[in-house]
Design a protein around this nucleic acid. Structure first.
Length: 264
DNA sequence: ATGGTAGTAAAACTA
């Protein structure tokens, strides 16, 4: 069994107590983190390594930033999403996990922080759409390797209306636009499986609740954090879940972790 | 239509 989880921590340094507790209790084999909001050299490396994880990150000052933790050794393969050398935002980190026996087959993972894209009448929205097109192209290229691949992170996409607490309130939001959803579906159509919906085809399964307006208390959230599986990964899909525990703590992230368990 | 909260970082800007 191999557990791979994704967690938008909304500042790694602020969330270290929560991250530490979660790594100890949930103990994922691989953790994909987003919005670490710090430079690489500001990472609390020793603290994470002392919990038994190898850590790699693509950081930035103050904003964005992704990290990748694994109990087994990993090798970083990409520190940026291919397709636009002028894009300097820290949003993509891909690595191969050298999983030991009995699993044995290498597992490729990516930690993704997809652009938010709001407001939609600014340059931010076309940047989001272009980023999604680059992601789909790269994801398509990866399929040719026929590997176990898990693309996980904060996609900033509500795939359907069922993934939104209030469709009216979100009607003009970049996360719910038809153009956004079409590009997300394209990732599915080329062969990636939305792990949560593979095992829970219906129902509300939120991963994010806005800090504003007591959204958590009312359970008014969004499903925007996803784990997308290549066919070889989907073959092994054993369980998936959203761990609401970290969201209940004092001073939480506005997101909570999502995880998949792959059979050996 | 507005403002509601949190993080970064020092006044807005992002989410």
């Amino acid at each position: 069994m191999l557990t791979i989880a994704s967690f938008n921590v909304n500042s790694l340094r602020v969330r270290m107590p929560h991250l530490t507790a979660w790594l100890k209790s949930a103990a994922p084999d691989v953790a994909l983190l987003q919005e670490i909001k710090c430079l690489d050299e500001e990472l609390p490396r020793l603290e994470i390594e002392s919990l038994g994880y190898q850590v790699s990150a693509v950081g930035m000052k103050a904003r964005h930033g992704v990290a990748l933790l694994s109990k087994a050794k990993h090798t970083v393969e990409q520190r940026a999403l291919p397709g636009d050398d002028t894009d300097g935002e820290a949003r993509y980190l891909e690595a191969v996990i050298h999983v030991p026996a009995p699993h044995d087959r290498p597992v490729r993972v990516a930690s993704i922080y997809l652009p938010n894209g709001n407001p939609i009448d600014t340059e931010k929205f076309p940047y989001k759409l272009r980023w999604m097109e680059r992601l789909n192209r790269h994801a398509c290229d990866l399929l040719a390797r026929e590997e176990i691949v898990v693309l996980g992170g904060d996609f900033n996409v509500c795939p359907t209306d069922e993934d939104v607490f209030d469709t009216h309130a979100m009607a003009e939001d970049a996360l719910c636009q038809p153009e956004t959803r079409r590009r997300f579906r394209e990732l599915c159509h080329i062969g990636y499986v939305d792990a949560l919906r593979a095992l829970y085809p219906a129902g509300r399964h939120y991963t994010f609740w806005d800090y504003q307006g007591a959204r958590w208390q009312r359970d008014e959230g969004l499903r925007i954090d996803h784990l997308m599986l290549s066919p070889q990964a989907a073959d092994l899909l054993d369980a998936v879940g959203i761990d609401r525990e970290p969201r209940k703590l004092e001073r939480p992230s506005d997101h909570t972790p999502i995880w998949v368990r792959l059979a050996a």
